[in-house]
């Protein structure tokens, strides 16, 4: 088993205090092979609206893997998106262009960055609900996970 430490930087900005960003470390144990998805959670959303799902993608294999497809029973359309700072006092969101996962690495989908975007929700998602999300990888194949709706 290969254990790595990934510094998870909680991007905390302050316009009034100018404080240093808080940092926390999260320890992951990579699987011996293939892909494992951990700590999945989702945002609340209204019916016909949108939501986002966050998780950590652990690629334990010696090869790069690629995300080929996404689906969920609660959404008509599912895509991998990323939020980015445009640098002109505006935040933008775009479809992630190259959803690949490097060998023996952890890719974190987290608020303000990479996320699975659920669109055309067929029901409202409120705190405590559990939803399914299926990610299909080129090498690891289809993996379905359960994500709990939270408002942390």
């Amino acid at each position: 088993m290969l254990t790595i430490l990934l510094p998870v930087i909680l991007l905390i900005s302050s316009c009034s205090g100018g404080e240093e960003p808080a940092q926390a470390e999260r320890e992951f144990t990579l699987p011996d092979d293939g892909i494992e998805l951990v700590d999945a959670w989702a945002r609340p959303g209204r019916e016909n609206g949108v939501s986002a799902v966050y998780m950590h993608v652990l690629n334990g294999s010696a090869d790069t893997d690629t995300l080929k497809a996404l689906s969920s029973s609660v959404a008509g359309l599912v895509e991998l998106h990323e939020t980015y700072d445009r640098g002109d006092d505006m935040m933008g969101m775009r479809e992630a262009e190259e959803p690949f996962f490097a060998p023996r690495s952890v890719t974190s989908m987290r608020p303000g960055g990479l996320h699975v975007m659920l669109m055309q929700l067929n029901r409202a998602l409120t705190e405590g609900d559990e939803i399914d999300v299926t990610l299909t990888f080129a090498r690891a194949g289809e993996i379905t996970i359960s994500a709990v709706v939270q408002s942390p």
Partner: peptide
Amino acid sequence: INHSDKILLIDQRSRLIFDYGGSMTP
């Protein structure tokens, strides 16, 4: 939509007191 990320604190006399980064400010 690309957009500003803001939360404002306005006082009881309608004056803007603080302008925060809306999503990431503790």
